[in-house]
Design a protein around this nucleic acid. Structure first.
Lengths: 155, 155
DNA sequence: GCACTTATTATGACTGCCTCACAATAAGGC
DNA sequence: GCCTTATTGTGAGGCAGTCATAATAAGTGC
């Protein structure tokens, strides 16, 4: 499997390959994201602090931003949610979020390996060179469907 | 019908149909969004103030949120951008954003009227009942491609 | 047309998520 | 080991949006 490399050594190699230094903070962040996919910065900070108690929130933001730019992490931002991160990069899978509880599930690409990468441009639109297509499904997860409370307003 | 109703009277009727009162503020916000599609709340406020100088930002937020809940407006949130609004609702068109300059273009649905509404769930994923699928294309627009500056980091 | 009810708007304070500027630390090349 | 400079820590700050409450005005019935 798995597109995400997953091991300490692989991450160290990837960091070096991108000209980054291999620090315990960066490895801790990568491990935290690996173990808590679809987590916001705050949760990643909390997880990474279990092994690195002095890690600061700002460092996590810097690291997450940098690793995202390097495509070692993937970031996506569901509506009404802080940005979420995951180590699964390179494939183009998508995400489904429950509009009731916010749960996130991975969704395999429905159209092959480059889904919908050829958009149908409107008459007056100026086409762009598309690089990625993020598909965000929104629905109701099974749990929330059972307990029909719909706890308010996650639009 | 053009999904976006577009006229003062149509909006008034729609507001009443949803049990909302027809105020000049709400009509001004609707007109502003109609004339400035893909605009953030701040720009909508500025536009609406041209005819309603005393309109406040908070009212715009309230109105935009309410009209979005009623599906009279559609909201979407590109990465690193405040929420954008448009009057085109009901169809499921998508959006392409230029990662360099932030320009937004409409994209017709590529797969019919309910694109990718049948996601391929991963082995360990718990399927959800999908209601909508937003597709967000990211690429480089023609203008930015010419001027290869890539003014930094709009990831 | 006029009062009255209550949705809607205005006012002001406030929060969450994240960025910026700069000083302190430590990774990697010599 | 030493040195350079990326990386991290520290603290302040900002944008986008929310919350609580008071003032206003749309729609209703008379």
């Amino acid at each position: 499997m798995t597109v995400s490399s997953g091991t300490h050594d692989a991450w160290a190699a990837a960091l070096r390959a991108h000209g980054r230094r291999v620090t315990k903070q960066r490895l801790a962040v990568l491990a935290a994201v690996e173990h808590h996919p679809h987590s916001p910065a705050e949760a990643i900070l909390a997880a990474a602090r279990q092994e690195l108690p002095d890690l600061t929130a700002q460092s996590v933001y810097v690291v997450l931003g940098d690793l995202t730019d390097l495509h070692m992490l993937r970031r996506f931002e569901p509506p009404h949610s802080p940005a979420l991160y995951e180590t699964r990069v390179g494939d183009n899978h998508h995400h489904a979020v429950c509009i009731s509880c916010g749960r996130v599930e991975d969704v395999e690409c429905a159209v092959g390996h480059a889904p919908c990468l050829t958009p149908h441009w409107g008459a007056d639109a100026k086409p762009m060179t598309i690089q990625i297509a993020d598909v965000l499904y929104q629905g109701i997860c099974q749990d929330c469907q059972r307990t029909q409370q719909l706890p308010s307003d996650r639009n």
